[in-house]
Amino acid sequence: MDSFSAPTSGPSSQLSPEDFMGQLKTQLAQAYAEEFLETVRGKCFDKCITKPGSSLSGSESSCISRCVDRYIEATGIISKALFSAPR
């Protein structure tokens, strides 16, 4: 059961605004992380698994690790370019 449906079970479980904000923050963080993960899966699959074989090769797995690291780095470069680079 997710944390939003829980408080509907009875008047004793009234949600305070503070709890609501906390739960919303947690759920948003989870949603952002899931979306990011899904994007990285797509990008790295395109880059590293060009010809799917009968099993994942060593070079494919190392490509995936590097791809994940680079994608995270790229995200940092983009936010810097948008918000802290002198234009």
Binding site: E35, T39, K43, R66, I78
Partner: peptide
């Protein structure tokens, strides 16, 4: 940020990702 990272990744990272 997510959208631009995706678009710019496709444009700028052409080979297999290096270390």
């Amino acid at each position: 940020v997510a959208k631009l990272t995706s678009v710019c990744w496709d444009k700028c990272v052409t080979g297999t990702p290096g270390s």
